[in-house]
């Protein structure tokens, strides 16, 4: 399982479109070797087919596809955007934090989602992620919140 390690975080990124944001979040997973390139296209396709329902909370998007689209290991990345971008969601736009989810079919996938849910249920952590002013400050939140 790869859960928001420093190598899976990108801070203060600039994107023009939701698709760019998804590519960035997926690109980090690809570099880490936890997904295949085709998984990124599947994430974008899922967005186009099913809409922005994965913008699960104000400012938070969790794009993902299916395990069979090319996932080697349960993993999640996080992109912090310099300027938020709109995904077209009715109530949770604009998006500032993108958690790219490599959805596996293993028990690890369930554990990973449990950890992610525990972090994001904490509104204090989320506020600090959005307002972080440096990579160090941003990364520190995940070290504190890394409940094993």
């Amino acid at each position: 399982m790869k859960f928001l390690d420093d190598s899976l975080l990108k801070f203060d990124q600039e994107v023009a479109t939701p698709e760019d944001a998804i590519r960035l979040a997926g690109g980090v997973l690809l570099e880490e070797g936890t997904i295949d390139r085709q998984y990124i296209e599947a994430m974008i396709q899922a967005y186009h087919e099913n809409g922005p329902y994965f913008v699960l909370a104000p400012a938070i998007a969790i794009p993902h596809a299916r395990p069979e689209d090319g996932v080697h290991e349960a993993s999640v990345s996080c992109i912090h955007l310099k300027e938020p971008v709109s995904f077209g969601h009715q109530s949770n736009d604009p998006v500032k934090l993108i958690f790219g989810l490599g959805a596996a079919s293993s028990q690890e996938h369930v554990e990973l989602l449990r950890k992610l849910t525990r972090v994001l249920n904490n509104q204090e952590y989320v506020k600090r992620m959005e307002q972080a002013s440096s990579f160090e400050e941003f990364s520190k939140i995940f070290r504190e919140s890394d409940i094993t």
Binding site: Y53, L56, I62, H64, A65, L113, T117
Partner: peptide, 15 residues
């Protein structure tokens, strides 16, 4: 329920 049944619907199930 979510679009794919893999990620976000599992998060929702937990909560």
């Amino acid at each position: 329920v979510c679009g794919l049944g893999q990620g976000t619907s599992l998060i929702l199930k937990m909560n």
